[in-house]
C-alpha cells in the first residue's frame, strides 16, 4: 500500500448545496500535501470526511488502509487532526491538556506525562507548561495544538488552516517544524490553507480546490508547466545604461531593439530606458543573453518570468468566478 490517503469520487451535499463534488486524489506516505483554495471551497468538509466526522453522500475513501466511514475510531487512532481555530480547556495548564488527550488515546498516566513533557519541549513550550492555556498567545496555542496532535504518535496529521492568526515569523517557524517532522519521522501531512505563499514554501504537492472541485494537483513546477504551456515566455532584463545618442559598436538602443526583434521566436520587444521586455514563443532566455553580449552591450540582469502560485491561483479563481 503506497498511498496513505486514497479518495475517489467523494461527493458531499448539504441540501441543494454541493460542498464537495466528486473529489479524487491520493497522498503518498511521508508527503506534505497542501489543499489550497478560497474560503468556502470545501476544504474543511473534505477534512471532516477524511476523519470520519461526517459521511459523504457518495464515493470511496481509505485512510491508512481503513475506511473512515465504517471505522472512524480506528482512523482516529492513526490520524492527528488539528481543527481550525483549535480550543483548549482554558483553566487547565498546557501540560494537563496534553495529558488528557494522551489518556483518551489509551496512554497510561505516567507515560502520558513523560510524552507530554517531551512534546512541550519539542514545540518550544517547556517554559509555559504549567501556565493556564487561557493565558497562552495565539501562536503558543497553535504550537500546543501541534503537540496535541503528535501525542498519539500519528501516521498522518491533518491541519485545517493552521496558520491563521499567527504573525509571519511565527508562521515560518511553525511550518518549518511541520516539514521537519514530516521528513524526520515520515509523517504524512495534509494541510489546508487559503494563503498560497505558505503552501508554496512547504508543500511537496498542492491540490487547488475551488467550489468543491479539485481543479489541478501536482507540484508547483508541474502545475505552472501544465497551466501556462499555452502562454508565451516573458523575459525581462536591463542593459548597461546608454544615452539614446551614444552607440555601442555603432548600435543605439533602438538598433538593439530591432536586432532582438529579428531573433527566432521573438514576438515583441519593448525597450524603456535601459530596460527591455521580450515576449517569445519558447524559452529563449539563454540565446538572448548570448546575443546581447555578442553585440557588445553590458547585460546587468536578465530574468525569465516564472509563474508562481499567485498566477496559478488567480487564473483558477478567475476561471471559476461566476459568469
Amino acid at each position: 500500500m503506497d498511498n496513505i490517503i486514497e479518495v475517489s469520487g467523494i461527493t458531499k451535499r448539504y441540501g441543494d448545496f454541493v460542498a464537495v463534488d466528486s473529489l479524487s486524489f491520493s497522498i503518498g506516505k511521508g508527503e506534505v500535501f497542501g489543499l489550497l483554495g478560497p474560503n468556502g471551497a470545501g476544504k474543511s468538509t473534505t477534512i471532516l470526511v477524511l476523519m470520519g466526522l461526517t459521511e459523504p453522500n457518495s464515493g470511496k475513501l481509505s485512510v491508512c488502509g481503513i475506511d473512515p466511514i465504517r471505522n472512524p475510531i480506528q482512523v482516529k487512532k492513526k490520524v492527528g487532526y488539528l481543527p481550525e481555530d483549535v480550543g483548549f480547556y482554558e483553566d487547565y495548564s498546557g501540560l494537563e491538556n496534553l495529558v488528557f488527550t494522551a489518556r483518551l488515546n489509551g496512554i497510561t498516566k505516567s507515560d502520558a506525562r513523560i510524552k507530554a513533557l517531551q512534546l512541550m519541549d519539542k514545540v518550544g513550550l517547556s517554559e509555559e507548561k504549567n501556565k493556564k492555556v487561557g493565558k497562552y498567545s495565539r501562536g503558543m496555542r497553535q504550537r500546543l495544538g501541534l503537540a496535541d496532535v503528535l501525542i498519539k504518535n500519528p501516521e498522518v496529521i491533518i491541519l485545517d488552516e493552521p496558520t491563521i492568526g499567527i504573525d509571519p515569523s511565527g508562521v515560518k517557524e511553525f511550518l518549518e517544524q511541520i516539514v521537519e517532522l514530516s521528513r524526520k519521522e515520515r509523517i504524512t501531512v495534509l494541510f489546508s490553507s487559503h494563503l498560497l505563499h505558505q503552501v508554496q514554501q512547504v508543500c511537496d504537492r498542492v491540490g487547488i480546490f475551488v467550489k468543491g472541485r479539485l481543479l489541478a494537483e501536482g507540484n508547483i513546477e508541474n502545475l505552472s508547466k501544465h497551466l501556462f504551456s499555452d502562454r508565451n515566455c516573458l523575459i525581462e532584463g536591463e542593459i548597461e545604461s546608454i544615452s539614446s545618442e551614444s552607440k555601442v559598436n555603432n548600435r543605439t538602443a533602438d538598433d538593439l531593439q530591432q536586432e532582438l526583434q529579428r531573433m527566432e521566436g521573438v514576438i515583441k520587444v519593448t525597450i524603456k530606458d535601459s530596460y527591455f521586455f521580450i515576449e517569445a514563443v519558447t524559452d529563449i532566455t539563454a540565446n538572448v543573453s548570448r546575443y546581447i553580449i555578442s553585440l557588445g552591450f553590458g547585460l546587468t540582469y536578465l530574468k525569465k518570468k516564472v509563474f508562481g502560485l499567485d498566477e496559478i491561483y488567480h487564473r483558477y479563481f478567475q476561471d471559476s468566478a461566476p459568469v
Partner: peptide
C-alpha cells in the same frame, strides 16, 4: 464554543 469539541471528536472515542 471553546472549540474543544472538535478536538475531542478527533480522538479515538465514540
Amino acid at each position: 464554543n471553546r472549540g474543544t469539541l472538535s478536538r475531542l471528536m478527533a480522538q479515538p472515542i465514540p
